[in-house]
């Protein structure tokens, strides 16, 4: 899981204590996925249980320090070398919502699409403004470079969603038109085709 490996990656640069890991995780990802200290300590104790980190004394202020173990390094290498699994995609609420909106009584699916498009494009505007700010100066350190990559990932994901929404809308319009021009006296195969083109836009 990403927090585990994220913490291991930070610990590879030297011993650290919990709230320090949290701060570094957040500055690397621009606070996009905020962590609380509790999550950090829970994750650290699991990593310790699994032998991937060890407690390593205290710093001057008495913070308990953690170090990555050799097994932890092996685990981290394996993480970088293994692609993120895409074979069982996470549930996507929007995809489920549109699937349920097809033919749902009293639901204007094009309105559902437009309200999502508004929201998605608005998010892209905000991300793009942040990106333009991030690009005013050449990124100076690895945190700034990492944040830019995360930000651009958000933009690309939102873009994919916006494009998919455009596609859904034109698909529905085409299907509705095809259904509308179908002759009344249809052959059995046509009738079958019509039932398969059942998802139609409700205007």
């Amino acid at each position: 899981m990403s927090i585990r490996h994220g913490l291991l990656a930070l610990l590879e640069r030297g011993p650290r204590y919990g709230s320090q890991l949290r701060t570094e995780f957040e500055s690397r990802t621009g606070s996009t996925w905020p962590l609380n200290v509790g999550q950090v300590y829970t994750t650290l104790s699991r990593l310790e249980r699994d032998g991937l980190v060890v407690q390593d004394g205290e710093d001057d202020q008495g913070h308990a320090l953690y170090s990555i173990s050799d097994d932890g390094r092996t685990e981290l290498r394996a993480w970088f070398e293994t692609p993120v699994d895409r074979s069982s995609p996470p549930r996507d609420e929007l995809a489920i919502k549109l699937a349920m909106a097809v033919g749902a009584p009293g639901v204007d699916i094009r309105a559902v699409i437009q309200s999502q498009r508004h929201h998605t494009v608005k998010a892209m505007q905000d991300y793009t403004r942040l990106k333009a700010q991030a690009l005013t100066d050449v990124p100076a350190n690895r945190d700034e470079v990492a944040w830019l990559l995360v930000l651009e990932q958000l933009i690309f994901q939102a873009e994919a969603e916006a494009r998919w929404l455009d596609h859904c809308e034109s698909r529905l319009v085409r299907l509705a038109e095809a259904a509308a021009t179908e002759p009344e006296a249809s052959t059995p195969s046509r009738a079958a085709a019509r039932t398969t083109s059942r998802p139609r836009a409700r205007r």
Binding site: G30, S31, T32, W33, P34, D126, R129, L130, Q133, L154
Partner: peptide, 9 residues
């Protein structure tokens, strides 16, 4: 984790 991004100016 859902993304949380600071609002731009």
């Amino acid at each position: 984790m859902s993304p949380h991004v600071p609002s731009p100016a």
